[in-house]
């Protein structure tokens, strides 16, 4: 029973981490049609900016998180305007651009702060006990923030005019433009939101896990897995695929070796794609 509760809690927390990172990746993919492979590096950048303010400059940790979100959000605007917009119809150039951004960000952080492993202090100290199972308060907070952001994004896209414009662009960019929607402005907003979400994830997980210039690589793979399973353009699907992958990663290593657990997870993804090539919720637009 103890193991079941532990696995349940672990799965929930791991899922929330994955969803938090994948949310921004999915947003840019859905609105702009861009596979932003630099999302993992942007997630890393968010964590390091928070670290710079909180640890190196001694700012309040929550204030550092907000500053990180703002700076990385602005960086998102820069990326959209100068790196993605000029190549929005050219998949290969966007991929090369994304790889260049990864290399530039990782190398810059490596040179400025060194490759040494670092960690942000916990945003919230303490341990919470649930039915005899201990969970760190910071993991609960990360889960809570992830859930609020996911819900907030869902409401924003469903209920606001800007959200509806995003939906329209995701569905048919040219048609949306003919209806008077400023596609560039909405794309810039999507990129800003995507990078801000990555910064939130990087800062929170930088405290829960640790910081390294290459921490985004594994997370990017998880984000891609989530988006592929859920199908492009589905936030509800992202929630489901996050839970699926999160629980596979949290439960399988309880019974088997890490390599085998990875293989099983990937086999599940392949099976899903064989049955539904567009992903589980690929037909939905958000």
């Amino acid at each position: 029973m103890d193991l079941v509760v532990t696995a349940f809690v672990n799965g929930l927390v791991t899922s929330s981490m994955y969803i938090l990172v994948a949310l921004g990746f999915a947003l840019v993919l859905s609105i702009m049609g861009i596979f932003n492979f630099a999302h993992g590096a942007i997630y890393m950048l968010g964590g390091y900016i928070c670290y710079a303010f909180a640890v190196l400059l001694g700012f309040n940790q929550w204030l550092s998180l907000i500053l990180s979100v703002l700076i990385v959000g602005l960086f998102g605007l820069f990326l959209e305007r100068f790196c993605f917009r000029p190549f929005s119809r050219d998949v290969y150039r966007v991929i090369i651009m994304a790889i260049a951004i990864i290399l530039i960000l990782e190398t810059t952080v490596n040179i400025l702060l060194g490759g040494t492993v670092r960690s942000l202090p916990a945003f919230v100290e303490g341990i919470i006990k649930v039915r005899g199972v201990s969970i760190s308060a910071e993991r609960v907070v990360a889960f809570g923030i992830g859930a609020v952001l996911l819900f907030g994004m869902h409401i924003f896209i469903r209920k606001t005019k800007t959200g509806q414009q995003m939906l329209a662009i995701a569905q048919e960019p040219e048609g949306a433009a003919l209806q008077g929607i400023n596609v560039n402005r909405i794309s810039a907003l999507a990129c800003l939101m995507s990078c801000s979400l990555a910064a939130v994830a990087g800062s929170l997980l930088g405290a829960i896990l640790s910081l390294s210039p290459f921490m985004g690589n594994n997370m990017l793979v998880k984000a891609i897995e989530l988006v592929i399973i859920s199908g492009i353009g589905s936030i509800g699907g992202l929630f489901f695929s996050g839970l699926l992958i999160g629980y596979l990663d949290a439960v399988l290593p309880l019974f088997t070796s890490g390599g085998v657990a990875d293989t099983i997870s990937l086999c599940v993804i392949i099976c899903i794609l064989l049955i539904r090539p567009r992903g589980l919720f690929g037909y939905e637009l958000f």
Binding site: A7, N10, V13, T14, M17, Y18, L209, N218, M219, V221, K222, D249, A250, V251, L252, P253, L254, G258, D262
Partner: peptide, 8 residues
Amino acid sequence: ATVDWSAV
């Protein structure tokens, strides 16, 4: 490829 070592 592990991100979170909780299960381990």
